[in-house]
Simulated scan of single mutants.
Amino acid sequence: MYSLQGIGISAAAEDVYLSLVERGPTTAAELAHVLHVTPHAMTAAVGELIALGLVAPDGAGLVAHPPRAALDALVESRSRDLATLRDGVEELTRFWHDHHAESAGYIEIVRTEAGRTAISRRLYDEATEQIRALTIGYSGRSARPNMMAPGCREALSRGVRTSVVYGPQVLHDRPAREAVQNSIDLGEQARVFTGVPLNMGICDDRFALVCPPASDWDRRHHIVVRRSDLLEALIGVFESYWQIAVPLPNAVDTADDTGAAPTAETRQLLTCLSGGLTDESIARELGVSERTVGRRITRLQELLGARTRFQLGVQASRHGWL
Rank of each mutant, 00 (worst) to 15 (best):
A251V: 00
T278M: 06
G24M: 06
L134S: 02
A255M: 10
R94Q: 06
S228T: 02
S240D: 08
T112F: 07
W321N: 04
Y2P: 13
R121S: 01
V34L: 07
G151V: 04
P249A: 08
P168L: 05
A283E: 01
V16W: 10
L74T: 13
P67L: 00
R220W: 12
T135E: 02
R296D: 02
H222A: 07
E102V: 15
R318F: 04
A104I: 01
G151P: 10
E265K: 13
T162D: 12
L269S: 11
D229T: 14
V314W: 06
L35K: 08
A32K: 02
R23D: 11
L156Q: 03
I184Q: 00
L4P: 15
P175N: 08
T112E: 06
T266F: 00
E108H: 15
L52R: 07
Q169G: 04
A45P: 03
L322D: 00
A143G: 07
P57N: 12
V224D: 01
D81P: 10
L269P: 14
D125F: 07
L230P: 03
S274G: 11
D87C: 10
M200Y: 14
A12K: 06
D173M: 06
G53V: 05
W321S: 01
Q130C: 13
T162Q: 13
R68M: 12
T292K: 09
H319P: 00
S281D: 09
E178K: 03
G236Q: 07
G59V: 06
R141K: 15
L269D: 04
F238H: 15
L198Y: 10
D173K: 07
R94M: 07
S10L: 08
A261Q: 05
R158I: 08
V34P: 05
E113C: 02
T128S: 14
G137A: 06
R161D: 15
V246K: 09
L52E: 01
P247L: 04
F95Y: 11
S10D: 05
G88W: 14
L248R: 01
V165W: 02
D229Y: 12
D257L: 14
S289G: 13
G259I: 00
S77I: 09
E22D: 04
I202D: 11
E280A: 13
R284M: 01
V89P: 05
L35E: 03
V16L: 03
R267K: 14
L198C: 06
T84W: 12
L4R: 13
V237E: 05
A114E: 11
N146S: 13
V75R: 14
Q169C: 07
V34C: 02
G137Y: 10
G287F: 10
R144Y: 11
Q311N: 07
V237A: 05
H33C: 01
G305I: 10
A44C: 09
P212E: 02
S157W: 01
E129G: 08
L123D: 00
R86K: 13
R309H: 02
A283K: 00
T292F: 10
T271L: 06
V293Y: 00
L300W: 12
